[in-house]
Design a protein around this nucleic acid. Sequence first.
DNA 1: AAAAAAATCCCCCGTATTGGGTTATACCGA
DNA 2: TCGGTATAACCCAATACGGGGGATTTTTTT
Lengths: 210, 210
Amino acid sequence: MENKNPITVVIIEDDETIRNGFTYLINATENYKVLNSYSNVEDALIGLVNDKPQVILLDIELPGIKGIEAIPKIKHILPKTYIIMLTVYDNEDNVFNALTKGASGYLTKSDNTEKIIDAIQEVVNGGAPMSMNIAKIVIKSFHKNQNSPLTKRETEILEQIANGKSRSKIAKQMFIDLETVKSHIKNIYIKLNVHSREDAIKEAKNNKYI
Amino acid sequence: MENKNPITVVIIEDDETIRNGFTYLINATENYKVLNSYSNVEDALIGLVNDKPQVILLDIELPGIKGIEAIPKIKHILPKTYIIMLTVYDNEDNVFNALTKGASGYLTKSDNTEKIIDAIQEVVNGGAPMSMNIAKIVIKSFHKNQNSPLTKRETEILEQIANGKSRSKIAKQMFIDLETVKSHIKNIYIKLNVHSREDAIKEAKNNKYI
DNA sequence: AAAAAAATCCCCCGTATTGGGTTATACCGA
DNA sequence: TCGGTATAACCCAATACGGGGGATTTTTTT
C-alpha cells in the first residue's frame, strides 16, 4: 500500500461546512491526508510551520487577512508548497492577483467536489489546475484586439515605447530615421486621441492594441 | 436525436494519419461532424469560406504558412470560429504567440485523443481547453519572482516607469517629492546594474520583478 | 491604372525630462 | 542599536519630448 507517503493537504476556509466536507472527502481518498484545517489565515500561519503540507487549499473570501494577501506570507514560510485557490466568485482581478503572487491553481467552488482531488494530484505533478471559467479568463487576457486602429508599424513602435525605449533608440533599432519614428508617434497620438507616451500606453493596453 | 445540429469541425494538419484519425474519431462521435480537413493553410483558407465551421483544429507545425501565422488569417474570414491549436512541442513562445493571436485552446498531441472531443465541447461552451503542461506554462508566466532585490517602493516606482510615466507624474501620483522619486530610480538602477529606463524595464521583466 | 493608405523623411520651436554626483534625515524592524 | 528603507535637497549637462508645418516614396486596395 502506498499509504505510507500520502499527499499532505491543509485547508484554510472559514465556512465550517465546506471545511469539514473537504476534509472528509480528501481523507476518505486513499493516498491523501488532511494534516490540519483552519478557519482563518492568522491561525494557519502559526500552524503551517509544523504542518508543512505539500498542498494548501486556500479560500479567497476570508475574515481578517484575505486569501490573496495570505499567499506571499505562506510562500515566505513554505516556499515549496503548492497553493490552490478556492472561490465562489471568478473575479478577474482576484484571479490575476492570486496568480502573480504565486498560486498554482484556481478552482471555483461550483466545481464538482471530486475535481478537488484531481486538482491536488495535478499540482503535485507540476500542473496548474483551473476551472473552466478561470481558464477562459486567463486565456482571454492574452487575446489581442484584432480591430486596432493602429497600423502594423505603429503597433510595433508603440510596443517599443511601452518597453521604455526613446525615439532615437527605436529609430536605430528599426533602421529608420528618427523623423520617421516621430511621424509614427504623432499619428499614434492622433489615432488614440492622446498627448503623451503614458496615455498612449494606457489607452493601448486598455484596448489590448498591444 | 440532436444530430440535426452537430458541432461542426475543420481539421488543418499535414500528417495524413493524424488527420484521418481525428476525422474518424470525431465523426464517430454523436453530435460532432468534420466538414472538411486540409493538409495546409493555403487550401484551408479557400475552403473555410464555405465550410464555416464552429471549431478548427489547427496544427502548429505545417508546411508553407505556419499554424500561428494562419490564426489571424482565419480570424479575419471567420471571426467567430474557435481555434484549438495542436502541437507535439510545448514551446513557450508558440503558446503565447498563438494565444495573443486569438487561439482559444491549446493541446499537445501527447494528450489522450479522446480529450480532443472534450476540448471541442469546451470551446463551444466558451471555455479554454489546455493540456496540463500548457496550463502550467501559462500560469507560470504570471508568477512574480519573490526574490526581487527591489524594495516595495522601488518596485512600485519601476512599475510606473514601465507604464511610461515621467518622474514628475510619479511624484505627484505617489504624493512624494520629485527628488525622492529620483533617489528611488537611482537605487533601482544601481541594484539592477543598468543606466536607463529601458534597461531597467527589460531587466525587471526578464527576472519577473514586475 | 488610379486612388487610398502606409511608411518614410525633413525643418522648426520651446519646455521638460533624464541620468548622474553627493549628502542628509527620520523611521523601523531585527 | 544598526542596517535597510523611504524621504528630500542641490548641482549639472545632454537629450528627449510634444507639436507645428510639410514632402516623398512605397504598398495596398479598388
